[in-house]
């Protein structure tokens, strides 16, 4: 079954660096319980501003990191620390990949 809604143009909100998410907003965006976020904060996967979890503010790119770390844990059987390490290495790899592409082009 196919439904098409081409009539209206949908405009969303870009989650750029000006936008900060609260703990509950991050949980919602990642579809994860707060306990999971606590674990990932503990391992440094994401680094909120503010001391008290009730005042935590996360940068928007945290959504990407949390979701990726969670998938790595689920699919590869690594723990939160392993996922944090993999995530850091993957980002470093990505940076190097972009540089390599630039040098080779």
């Amino acid at each position: 079954m196919k439904t098409t809604d081409m009539m209206s143009l949908l405009a969303g909100e870009v989650l750029d660096e000006d936008i900060e998410l609260s703990l509950s907003e991050l949980c919602r965006a990642c579809q994860l319980p707060a306990e999971r976020i606590f674990e990932l904060v503990e391992e440094g996967v994401v680094d909120p501003l503010g001391r008290d979890p009730r005042q935590w503010r996360f940068q928007a790119f945290s959504i990407r990191r949390v979701r990726c770390a969670h998938r790595l844990e689920q699919d590869l059987g690594v723990n939160a620390a392993g996922a944090a390490l993999a995530l850091d290495l993957l980002e470093e790899l990505e940076r190097l990949h972009v540089r390599l592409q630039r040098l080779e082009s």
């Binding site: 098409t4 949908l10 405009a11 909100e13």
Partner: peptide
Amino acid sequence: KERTLNVSIPKGVRQGQHIRLA
């Protein structure tokens, strides 16, 4: 189910950023 949306991508978006459509 399949549905097609027409989404506006604003100027200035960057790789890896998220756009939230409420």
